[in-house]
Write a protein that binds this DNA or RNA. Structure first.
Lengths: 276, 276
DNA sequence: CAGGGTTCTTTCAATGGTTGGAATAGTATT
DNA sequence: AATACTATTCCAACCATTGAAAGAACCCTG
């Protein structure tokens, strides 16, 4: 009597599970496995997290390595390659704004010696494009390349306030996610806040975790007048008061906007002034 | 009499030209089309440069856009997406060293107010990982994400000097490419130069184009003692003398190395000193 | 406002790259 | 030595992939 394993295991319904997914999607899902916590992965880890058989993963990875999207370490693990970084540096909303904004971020950083952040919106989150920090600065929540929520950060509120109406409604309708350390706003208050941000060009938020900080952010506009990025400063609560920071942040953001071709609206007083 | 195009054009030997290339390779070749000069491309441009039929390109691009590797502008053109930038920011040799090195680059920049560069080697070229420049600084040859030759730049010489023996031989054997503004060295002199770079931890090169500049570079080591990056400063020829810059550059590079876990060799004098 | 030229998009039948189980080799752990 | 895991090679079945063709959507220019 021979064993009949078929009785035990529901014998491979389709025999070829998961087959039919486009190759590119699979390759990209391999890239997506990498994260802040997973920067170097073995073949089996990649296969497991991307949910595909090892031979398939190996074949795809081999192509990615050949091109330079991935690199193989001496110990056999894989990491994201410089070639991918190189192409990514051509991303207008990534390195593009970063390159233009950096000098002004540096100025702001020099003056304040506190965290200076630059972010753009990707779907429903803010993606950190740049961060300048003093070596001895306070703890910071987000790293470059990382993501931050739109509703509960100053840098995110600016991006949300500048998004198209339809997108804002989608977010506003959503039930508030409870993030520790930040009092989540009900819909009505959030609407008012966003309106204020649009009017004043400033968003401000207090956090208590990971540490007690105040963030002040301001929008960066492109030539078409769309909000393309958000510039923020994060200081320990109780140090420089927010109303002192706001003008500096706003000025830096406007300087970047101007470099992007934005014709800033000039206030009535200033115009009167220049007209004599 | 009807035209017979078959006589002119070798009539589609296999009917399906170029067929048989792995899908991933094609997708990646689409990404590779983007460059400093081509940051936003139409479908037909992408198809033409990547050498594939428009429908094929469209299909692949659609997958890339869905994932976020590419983004579509309002005018229909495609650009590199933030999502790709996000994954690329996990590249150890890209953002990795950059993140660790940045504070020290900033220190060096603050002190000198001249171009400070950081690069890693990718195959036979140096890839610029970071560049700090004053807004009014002298013209600079290379941009972040761009590539520079190994033999005719200070930052490249350092990387070449630190590469494995076999790779160095390959490069040394190669006939010198003539780059304008930099006197190309014959093999013998280049060998001596590389040896000097290894001994002193400093490479130096004078350029005349695009402007008269002096570059001083120094290697960055990882915990295993391999040269993983190169740090360089570029100043106008005739300003700060190179022998003044060298110690600052070397110190900054060593500081970064230490942060990467490199146990720097201490000179005999220093050791004697501390031993009393 | 036709009309030639371009780019973009959809369709679809043929097919060859892709697939993953199975087997093998390599490596670490018990 | 045995066990467990990971990495790699092999290969026949098969389905995603392919690109010509045709249509749709725009330009321009006369």
């Amino acid at each position: 009597m021979t064993v009949t394993p078929e009785t035990d295991i529901p014998p491979a319904r389709g025999k070829r599970p998961k087959q039919g997914e486009p190759v590119i999607d699979r390759a990209l899902s391999l890239l997506a496995v990498f994260s802040d916590r997973r920067r170097a992965l073995t073949l089996s880890e990649l296969a497991r997290y991307a949910d595909m058989p090892a031979p398939t993963a190996l074949r795809l990875i081999a192509r990615l390595v050949a091109w330079g999207a991935l690199e193989r370490l001496d110990d056999g693990r894989y990491v994201v390659g410089v070639r991918l970084w190189e192409v990514a540096s051509l991303s207008p909303r990534g390195h593009g704004v970063r390159e233009i904004a950096l000098p002004y971020l540096e100025d702001l950083f020099e003056v304040t010696r506190h965290h200076v952040l630059l972010a753009v919106r990707d779907n429903e989150q803010a993606v950190l494009i740049e961060r300048l920090s003093a070596k001895d600065a306070t703890e910071v929540a987000y790293r470059v390349g990382g993501r931050a929520p739109l509703r509960s950060t100053a840098i995110g509120l600016v991006l949300l306030a500048g998004a198209d109406q339809q997108f804002q409604e989608t977010i506003l309708k959503r039930p508030p996610e409870n993030e520790p350390g930040v009092p989540e706003m009900p819909e009505g208050q959030l609407r008012r806040t966003l309106s204020d941000v649009r009017r004043t060009g400033i968003a401000m938020i207090r956090r208590t975790v990971p540490s007690r900080t105040v963030s002040v952010a301001s929008p960066i506009f492109d030539a078409q007048g769309s909000v393309v990025a958000s510039l923020s400063i994060v200081v320990p609560d109780g140090s420089t008061p927010p109303n002192v920071l706001a003008p500096a942040v706003r000025a830096a953001a406007r300087a970047v906007s101007r470099n992007l071709g934005h014709r800033a609206a000039v206030s009535a007083e200033a115009r009167t002034h220049s007209q004599g």
